[in-house]
């Protein structure tokens, strides 16, 4: 997950080789963008055709992503105008992003357990990762 890249608007890019389905990558990216405030409530997100051509993906895939985001209440279609971020979209995006972080952490913990790391070791590994990331972020900014 590249949070640093979030702060840029388009162009976004997807990884066509990833095991994560492309529609999911689009959903995740738009959600993170909304959570980070790149797209604010009431603002439009790229049109279906625009995004499909930008990313070079099947428009059906973009449609599926948008449908899911619409179901989650993040975006809403305005007739003839396209897709717009809903008022409570930002909040729901934040919640979802936090849930994604939780999943990432549980995955890391499971990996640690599978590697037979004791609980304390897993915690110190987290602390080390936290310090390294912060140092990296400071250097970037």
């Amino acid at each position: 997950m590249h949070y640093g890249a979030l702060l840029r608007r388009l162009p976004i890019s997807i990884d066509p080789n990833s095991h994560v389905p492309i529609y999911q990558q689009i959903v995740d990216h738009i959600r993170r963008s909304v959570a980070a405030g790149v797209y604010r409530p009431g603002e439009p997100i790229p049109s279906l055709r625009q995004l499909a051509l930008e990313l070079l993906v099947n428009p059906n895939t973009v449609q599926r992503a948008y449908e899911q985001l619409e179901r989650e209440g993040l975006i809403q279609a305005r007739r003839g105008l396209g897709m717009f971020v809903t008022e409570n979209g930002a909040v729901s995006a934040l919640t979802k992003s936090q849930a994604a972080v939780y999943s990432a952490f549980t995955e890391g913990i499971r990996a640690g357990k599978a590697a037979r790391m004791p609980a304390q070791r897993i915690r110190t590994t987290f602390d080390r990762a936290w310090d390294d990331t912060n140092r990296g972020a400071t250097e970037e900014s």
């Binding site: 997807i14 066509p16 080789n17 492309i22 990313l55 070079l56 993906v57 099947n58 059906n60 895939t61």
Partner: peptide, 9 residues
């Protein structure tokens, strides 16, 4: 395969 993953339904 990356093209297929992008384009195929």
């Amino acid at each position: 395969l990356s093209d297929v993953q992008r384009m195929a339904d």
